[in-house]
Design a protein around this nucleic acid. Structure first.
Lengths: 240, 240
DNA sequence: CGCGTTTTTGAAGCCCCTCAAGTGTAGTGG
DNA sequence: CCACTACACTTGAGGGGCTTCAAAAACGCG
């Protein structure tokens, strides 16, 4: 009786049955939260780790001027925070984008897993490194790519991540993300994201409705975006 | 007989004498490299970890269109890669910005340290998490801040990091970074960086010469940048 | 001193933003 | 079943921030 989180980690390293059992047990504390719910806010002292089991969430930071910048999307199986062990207070917030089911693992349990189960520790470390690669890819996108490339690149990333979770069907995948949220992630305005999406739709690469993304031509899409899936590393291995 | 790397880790966690000795010994393989030298290139298979002992370096990625995006600056004490343990090939390159002295720790030695010395492992993990915080801050900067704020923010970050290493003297610190490099890091053009620097100089917040940065008014600087040093976490503790 | 690189300054243009209004589309309650 | 409301999406017009192109001045280093 495993879950998206355990499955993802098993994609990174091979876990013994005992490891799997301990991980699943660690996710025993589960709860359902509505959409747009802050799991933790900037300034809070982190006391436990979150794991996304169902639904989507994002890391974000609010700016004094009022804007919002999203720095990561969290899908089922993703860790919310290793920060527990390190930070006195959160330097960003995490909020759900859809109704979600999350597990919380308290600090003590986390420490114990890390101290006693080397394979699990290694898996945690890997997720960390892959996430870092994604952050770097975002920086490259925001620094050096046009708005069309940026939108296409983000959609490619989300599509590939969804695919590696096996929730893609013939180029179609659920993507419950509004244009406003896309804009907050891309450093663009919702108005401009709208225009870019139309452009991509008109040239026949993809279509995006309220909660669905349809990739018509993934090759063209990747070409436009300058997308090189290599940076997602292990995530992809599972799709093959 | 310790070094910048060991000193930095000791700022994160308390290490026993044995830990310190092992870390210092791990850095025994040292070499000097000139400026603009690629320590490792995108596509290479990483075989060892680099540690900056003296000089500056940066992570960067070249784009098909010819541009370059820098994703991180590496100063003495910084790790170049934990990727050894995880990645089949590098998804970015690392190059020196100045003549530098680097230590290389091979994979086996690294694994052994991690397996046998929990305090060292913990310190590695922390550096990782702090670096991730810096990446997130960069994304926020590039997504939602004006060019003036971005330049000011980066200079604040570099200044504070330099300060925590103790190489700042009365608001002056060595910053051997050309405007071209700044532009590559900020996602701006060198021309515009130049104009922004003039603006900051004229309003009396800072002055930047070829290899020196003088912060005249750090408070005003931080105010312009929207700089909140909290995201650098442990790094700052050492400055106090 | 001489050469390459960096810095500086100017002029023109484009990409994306801002402001504004109108059009769906869900969900709610009468 | 149809207002009514609250959002999200869409489209237009105009402006500003940063880029592009170009060239001169200043710097650093053999």
């Amino acid at each position: 009786m495993s879950n998206a989180f355990v499955e993802k980690l098993r994609g990174y390293v091979s876990l013994t049955e005992e490891d799997t059992r301990l991980l699943t047990a660690a996710c025993a504390m589960q709860r359902d939260v509505p959409a747009r719910y802050d799991l933790i806010r900037e300034g809070d002292k982190p006391v436990s780790v979150f794991v996304m089991l169902e639904g989507w969430a994002c890391r974000y930071k609010l700016l004094p001027e009022g804007g919002r910048q999203i720095t990561a999307f969290l899908m089922p199986g993703d860790f919310c925070d290793m920060h527990v062990a390190v930070l006195d207070e959160m330097d960003h917030s995490i909020a759900t984008l859809t109704p979600a089911r999350v597990a919380t693992i308290d600090r003590a349990k986390m420490e114990k897993l890390i101290e006693t189960r080397p394979a699990i520790t290694r898996a945690f470390w890997r997720t960390q490194l892959v996430d870092e690669g994604v952050l770097r890819a975002w920086i490259v996108c925001m620094g050096r790519r046009s708005s069309v490339q940026r939108v296409a690149h983000l959609l490619c990333e989300l599509y590939v991540r969804a695919r590696s979770m096996g929730v893609v069907d013939a180029g179609r995948c659920e993507l419950p993300i509004s244009q406003i949220v896309l804009a907050d992630a891309l450093g663009l305005t919702p108005v401009h994201v709208n225009r870019v999406l139309r452009q991509l739709r008109l040239c026949g690469t993809m279509a995006k409705s309220a909660r669905m993304l349809v990739i018509v031509d993934i090759v063209q899409m990747a070409a436009i975006a300058g997308f090189d899936e290599n940076y997602l590393h292990q995530r992809l291995k599972r799709a093959a």
